[in-house]
Amino acid sequence: MKIGLYFGSFNPIHVGHLITANTIAENSDLDQVWFVVSPHNPHKKKSSLLHEFDRYDMVRLAIAGNEKLNVSDIEFSLPKPSYTIDTLTYIQEKYPNYQFQILIGEDNLTHFHKWKNHEKILEYYGVLVYPREGTPKTEFHSHPKVKCIEAPLLNISATYIRNLIQEQKSIRYLVPQDVEVLIHSKKFYL
């Protein structure tokens, strides 16, 4: 099975994440895309994150019924902060018959050379890249293990959604309805 791993905080998951993952799942040779909920991204402040189980629950609700999408809590038991190469090594050992690639936004290519063991990620796994507006071309754009995928340009951010919630404004259509209900019922981000 070919699996695309879509790493993120998903704080909260929103329609931009879902459209991107579904577009790639439907328009590539992947069998599934797995949302890998990161307990702590080494490049983000931990204080702004909801608990990882709450973020996992939101992703689970958001993708319910889509057989091409799945959610993984694999990083919850790994040392924190999580580094992509460590997760890839662990997940490959756990699923030796699966083939994994990572999904990243094009903007990540500008600093991909700073990722821990980025050469090994390219050599053993490969990278599927979805477009981000205004991203300059890098040497990675022409790398044989980097494949740019055509997908809609979506400029929706979880920060924007969290700000709307704090201002008690509507987040309708920015997140799936079940996620919106959960956010309001548990008073997330207030």
Rank of each mutant, 00 (worst) to 15 (best):
I121N: 05
L30E: 08
R55E: 01
E119D: 15
A158K: 08
K145C: 04
H51Q: 04
D57L: 04
S38P: 12
Q101M: 13
I19V: 15
K2G: 10
H14C: 06
Y130M: 10
E52F: 01
G134T: 08
K2S: 14
H14N: 11
E26W: 00
F10W: 06
L154W: 01
V146A: 03
K46C: 00
W34Y: 14
D107K: 08
L182K: 15
Y130I: 12
E106D: 15
T135P: 02
K116E: 09
K116R: 14
L174C: 06
E52D: 00
K68M: 03
R162D: 04
S38W: 12
H51V: 00
L103I: 15
E26R: 13
F53C: 00
D107L: 07
P12G: 04
Q99I: 13
V175H: 07
S77V: 00
F10K: 03
F35G: 12
T138S: 09
S185W: 05
L5F: 03
Y189P: 03
N97Y: 10
F112L: 13
E180R: 13
G65A: 07
T89N: 14
N155V: 07
V15K: 09
A21W: 05
Q32V: 13
Y98P: 00
W115A: 06
L61P: 01
E67T: 09
S170L: 08
T89S: 14
T135F: 01
P12C: 08
F10L: 04
E123H: 15
S157M: 11
H111T: 15
L128H: 13
N11W: 02
F188N: 01
V36D: 12
A21M: 07
F53V: 08
I91G: 06
E150V: 13
H184S: 14
P152H: 07
L109S: 03
W34K: 14
G105H: 14
K45N: 14
T89P: 01
I161F: 04
N155T: 10
R60A: 11
P176H: 07
V37Y: 02
N163H: 11
H14Q: 05
Y83E: 11
H184V: 00
N117W: 06
V127G: 12
K137S: 12
L49I: 02
G4I: 02
W34C: 10
L164M: 07
A64P: 00
K116Y: 08
K187L: 02
T87I: 12
E119M: 11
C148G: 00
I149S: 01
I171Y: 06
E106L: 03
P136S: 08
N163T: 11
K169Y: 12
K114W: 06
S82L: 04
K116C: 03
S77T: 11
V175R: 05
N22C: 01
T159W: 10
L190D: 00
V127W: 11
L174I: 05
W34H: 15
G8A: 07
P81N: 05
D107F: 09
T84F: 09
H111W: 15
L78Q: 15
S82F: 03
K169T: 10
L103Q: 10
S28Q: 02
S9F: 02
L5I: 05
E180W: 03
L50Q: 12
Q92D: 14
F100T: 11
G126H: 14
T87C: 08
F53G: 01
V181E: 14
L174W: 13
A151F: 08
H14I: 07
